[in-house]
């Protein structure tokens, strides 16, 4: 069994009396790729700042390799959304700044700028970059730091599909080198590469597990057309429907699933998606027998 490299215990974080994280418990195993999933604004970025040692917990603790995260600054390489790039410098000057700043910065940045197609834009000032180019530059900087743990806050936001696949390949590559990779996202695509997934809702980690375990715990899902939504609402857990491609979906208890199987224009889905998983664990649904 893998040892734990990051341990958040009863972690709470408030800003100006506003509670952002509340009793978060999370263990990150050495060498794993963990996806932390949750809707926007549930506290994922703050959680990552606490894991990186950038923020002191208001209560509880975060340890990295057994020591308080805030006491160690050599263990993580942290991509914080839109915070790394210096707008008035060129891409190359940004890389040079971080290469001087971080003693563990490596020459791998050359490979990453090539992979991300940034080579021709390195002499441009970052203020003239698009959102996607800035994210690629941030990824280049973060990936070029040699650290045992990589924390990526929304690494694929603003990126197109091809680049997302390239990012996933690079994250897997880091994992293959024995590094621990933790990725936050609200995109189900990013869950696809994870060994384990932790779902965050309302400032808490509501569940953590391997994808198969998490899928097994999801109750049956029914789908119907938008025009037939009312009939599904009556049997939906918590009366809550979720949009899907051209229709709506709902979670139902196993019993309801049987009794509604013959409902007109309602289909029971055999193959659930990460979106279903995301909806189930992050929506405020009442407890369901599974």
């Amino acid at each position: 069994m893998s040892q734990t490299c990051i341990e958040a215990t009863n972690l709470g974080k408030s800003f100006d009396d506003e509670l952002v994280l509340d009793d978060v418990n999370l263990s990150v195993r050495s060498g794993e790729l963990l996806a932390v999933m949750g809707p926007n604004g549930v506290g994922k970025s703050v959680l990552f700042s606490c894991l990186a040692g950038s923020e002191h917990p208001t209560h509880g603790s975060v340890t990295v390799f057994g020591e308080p995260a805030t006491d160690r600054s050599d263990t993580t390489s942290f991509l914080l959304q839109d915070a790394l790039c210096l707008e008035r410098l060129t891409g190359r000057e940004n890389i040079q700044f971080y290469s001087q700043l971080h003693p563990m910065f490596t020459s791998e940045w050359r490979e990453y700028v090539e992979v991300f197609g940034l080579t021709d834009d390195l002499e441009k000032r970052v203020e003239h970059y698009s959102g996607g180019m800035k994210r690629k530059l941030e990824l280049t900087i973060t990936l070029s730091i040699d650290a045992p743990i990589y924390l990526f806050d929304e690494p694929t936001a603003a990126l197109d599909l091809t680049v997302i696949q390239e990012v996933h390949r690079l994250l897997r590559e880091k994992q293959a080198e024995g590094k621990t990779v933790v990725v936050s996202s609200h995109s189900p695509m990013d869950a696809d590469i994870a060994d384990r997934i932790a779902f965050v809702a309302d400032g808490r980690v509501v569940v953590t597990g391997e994808p198969d375990e998490l899928f097994d715990a999801v109750p049956p899902v029914l789908e119907t057309t938008v025009t037939n939504a009312d009939s599904l609402t009556r049997v939906a857990v918590g009366g809550q429907l979720f949009p899907s491609d051209g229709g709506v979906r709902a979670f139902v208890s196993p019993d309801e699933s049987v009794s509604t199987a013959e409902m007109e224009a309602v289909t029971r889905l055999e193959q659930l998606t990460y979106t279903d998983l995301f909806n189930y664990y992050t929506a405020d649904l009442p407890a369901t027998p599974r």
């Binding site: 700042s49 600054s73 993580t76 942290f78 915070a83 210096l86």
Partner: peptide, 17 residues
């Protein structure tokens, strides 16, 4: 002020600076 406004010190604090 630019570093503070862009939350860059959050990133700096995670580095051995």
């Amino acid at each position: 002020a630019g570093d503070l406004e862009d939350r860059r010190y959050e990133a700096y604090r995670s580095m051995p600076i």
